[in-house]
């Protein structure tokens, strides 16, 4: 009951989705399964949010180091959730001018839009931007031109980096006529269009085969790791 039923559910759902791709009669089942999947994905966010709340509340009640930050996380979470679910600051649209509930939750000017635009967006994009520093510093420490393959990696990275900057195009004016292909931007285009394309294609084909075999293992019940190891 605890392990067999989930296996049957996983296999049935998976094979229905595969069948729906090939048999037009079962197409409707496939689209319904995908809609159910989307509902469960939304519920998974509720589960994640609840876990976040539980963990942070625990941290605050135990007065563990950094509990103040846990309180900030909790406040930010609850404020965003409340203004989003209650559609605070949302104005009615011209289609339904008397019903503000019908307007989009992320309408320009609403409180959730404010939180997204002035908190989430700058924080998220700056965090990703910071990775530029960390990738560069990690590369500086880890990359060593110890053998020809490592030199190939480093030189390619250097050419692509330069080719995507203003300097890449500037070289074109300096190089003699007929030698423009030696400019960084031309070499970058060639590397991206030939070597990178071939390499990524080989990797993509490998990934597709890996995904297909892993999926089959799950559907046939060979891989049961998602059921966990305990009895409960």
């Amino acid at each position: 009951m605890k392990r067999t039923v989930p296996m049957i559910i996983a296999a049935t759902t998976g094979f229905v989705l595969i069948m729906s791709h090939f048999i037009p009669l079962s197409e409707e089942w496939g689209s319904k399964a995908m809609q159910w999947f989307n509902v469960l994905a939304a519920i998974a966010f509720v589960l994640g949010g609840s876990n976040l709340m539980r963990m942070n509340l625990q941290k605050i009640s135990d007065r563990r180091p950094g509990w103040g930050y846990a309180a900030v996380t909790l406040i930010a979470f609850l404020v965003t959730l409340s203004v989003g679910l209650l559609k605070v600051g949302v104005q009615p649209t011209s289609s339904f001018p008397t019903n503000a509930w019908a307007a989009p939750y992320n309408q320009e000017g609403s409180s959730l839009w404010w939180l997204y635009e002035y908190l989430y967006k700058p924080l998220a994009s700056t965090m990703f931007a910071l990775l530029a520093f960390f990738i560069a510093s990690a590369a500086f420490r880890a990359f060593r031109a110890k053998n020809p393959e490592a030199i190939a990696l480093l030189s390619t990275a250097f050419i692509v980096l330069m080719g995507r900057t203003y300097v890449g195009g500037l070289m074109r004016d300096i190089l003699p006529r007929g030698m423009e292909w030696l400019s960084f931007d031309s070499m970058t285009n060639y590397i991206m269009g030939v070597f990178n394309l071939a390499g990524m294609r080989a990797i993509t084909i490998g990934i597709a085969l890996g995904v297909a075999s892993t999926s089959l293992k799950v559907l046939l019940g060979v891989d049961r790791s998602y059921l966990g190891s305990g009895d409960d």
């Binding site: 939304a42 949010g49 996380t73 930010a76 979470f77 965003t80 992320n106 959730l112």
Partner: peptide
């Protein structure tokens, strides 16, 4: 402080989007 705010806001935003767009 900013990291804590980011975690809270992003988790709640995804929940709100999931509620209105899917549920």
């Amino acid at each position: 402080l900013m990291e804590s705010i980011f975690v809270g806001v992003s988790a709640a935003y995804l929940m709100v989007a999931g509620f209105w767009d899917e549920l």
